[in-house]
């Protein structure tokens, strides 16, 4: 066989790979540009007062403390609900369910739940939690709505972590006379725990950045007092940014907008980064 087109093939490779490189660079540049832009624009307004004070003078002065604390309540609440339910589903799928129709229906519903647009979760939260169950526009309604959103991610991350526990661990436990449940509880879950937690933190970061699901279930633009119970509405960072962006064109709003944005991406990307770093370490140190 002759190598008549070797030169041509070599040039093709170089040219096409350069195109791929360009696409990756463009993507990286666009997203790095956005982050840098927000840092430059927003860094000036970040101060201790900005983080610890309430807004004042119809949002043109003061800080965003209530929005930060609101986002914290909402995400913590979502986690408290979604982690046990999601983990239990994952344990069921990986340790108890036999392959079959029911198993695949559950998997399919998890996959589809993950693909449902967040605004539809908002609609459901409004119709079910806020109206039907009478929870009102409150931390509870918002947390439950966010919990539904992050549950599929928790389920799949946990299932992946459980699947990676080698069979030999389980066999060792069975060989000592442990029952199925004892094996799951004492051997499989502890070994999978780091993977489960990092996966959950990643999903939590996503919940902290969501706006549409809390717009009509939990968030308000301004509250006079910090929330005192689960049934109070709260301010929340993403909703606050949306409102600041659309509420008016007052000069003084601009730095507060960017400052809030910076706090939000710091929170979301910081949490994700921490989880990703830990996960990378776990994967690298894994002995099996």
């Amino acid at each position: 066989m002759k190598a008549n087109n070797l030169k041509k093939r070599k040039y093709y490779t170089v040219a096409v790979f350069a195109l791929f490189r360009l696409a990756a660079l463009l993507t990286a540049a666009a997203l790095a540009g956005i982050v840098l832009f927000l840092i430059i624009k927003g860094a000036g307004s970040i101060s201790w007062d900005f983080l610890s004070q309430s807004p004042a003078d119809s949002m043109t002065k003061g800080g965003i403390f209530p929005a930060i604390i609101g986002t914290f309540y909402l995400t913590a609440g979502a986690m408290l609900v979604a982690l046990p339910l999601g983990l239990a589903t994952a344990v069921y799928l990986s340790e108890y369910a036999r392959p079959g129709r029911i198993n695949s229906i559950i998997r399919l519903s998890v996959a589809n739940l993950a693909g449902v647009p967040s605004v539809i979760f908002g609609l459901f939260g409004l119709a079910f939690f806020v109206t039907k169950l009478g929870l009102g526009i409150s931390i509870l309604s918002g947390s439950l709505t966010l919990a539904l959103i992050i549950m599929p991610t928790i389920i799949s991350a946990s299932e992946e972590a459980l699947k990676q526990i080698p069979l030999s661990y389980r066999e060792a436990s069975y060989a000592l006379g442990a029952s199925h449940w004892q094996t799951v509880f004492n051997v499989v879950l502890p070994a999978a725990l780091p993977g489960i937690i990092t996966g959950s933190v990643l999903s939590l970061a996503r919940a902290a950045g969501e706006t549409a699901p809390i717009m009509y279930t939990a968030a308000v633009f301004y509250t006079l007092h910090l929330p005192s119970s689960l049934f109070d509405p709260v301010m929340a960072l993403p909703y606050h940014i949306y409102k600041l962006a659309t509420v008016g064109t007052h000069e003084a709003l601009v730095p507060i907008r960017y400052g809030s944005c910076l706090v939000l991406i710091g929170l979301v990307l910081g949490m994700s980064l921490a989880a990703i770093i830990i996960r990378t370490k776990i994967r690298r140190n894994k002995q099996w």
Partner: peptide, 16 residues
Amino acid sequence: PVIELLAAMPSVVLGL
């Protein structure tokens, strides 16, 4: 990991 990080970018920030 960077790609994964970018997938977590809040949409309201991109909107802004």
